[in-house]
């Protein structure tokens, strides 16, 4: 008999649309911190995906590990250091700026500068000596535009 009442009570508890049960949920500060750290770490079993975006089981566990460490009061730097000590540089989404890695951090800009300088010098060389002689002043603006139209109209 008693069981039936308990069951009935339980059913009410479950079935009744308690207004207080539907709540507004939001991210906690911890969630945001987990995300920020997870985005900088690579899912080691995926193809260039971070552990935040990946759905692989290892990524899920790594996110849990980050959360646990944050709850224990570890700082983001300590967590980075922990993962680095386990997996090496590979775990970071970008090569850390030391040693040979400087090569790829500097190369794009170095190439632009060197290439730009080289181009500038070459073009200066190619410029016809004759063009150094004073040229006639450019024709009036409208004239030039008319010429352009004239030219284009000749080839309908």
């Amino acid at each position: 008999m008693m069981n039936r009442y308990i069951l009935f009570g339980f059913l009410i508890l479950v079935m009744f649309p308690w207004p207080t049960l539907a709540k507004v949920v939001d991210e906690t500060e911890l969630d945001v911190q987990v995300r920020e750290i997870a985005k900088t770490l690579r899912c080691t079993v995926c193809q260039t995906e971070n552990i935040w975006e990946s759905g692989a089981p290892l990524a899920v566990q790594m996110r849990a590990a980050i959360r646990e460490r944050l709850t224990l009061g570890h700082s983001p730097e300590e967590i980075h250091a922990y993962f680095l000590s386990r997996y090496g540089d590979y775990i970071l989404m970008q090569p850390p700026k030391h040693g040979m890695n400087w090569l790829i951090w500097v190369a794009p800009f170095a190439l632009l500068l060197v290439g730009g300088f080289f181009l500038y010098k070459e073009v200066k060389q190619w410029v016809r000596p004759s063009s150094s002689t004073p040229q006639q002043p450019p024709p009036p603006l409208d004239q030039e535009a008319r010429e352009r139209i004239e030219r284009e109209l000749h080839h309908p």
Binding site: P57, L58, V60, Y87
Partner: peptide
């Protein structure tokens, strides 16, 4: 159970 042991050992596969 939580996979934390594997992470401690840098296991990925």
């Amino acid at each position: 159970i939580k996979g934390s042991l594997a992470i401690d050992y840098g296991v990925y596969g």
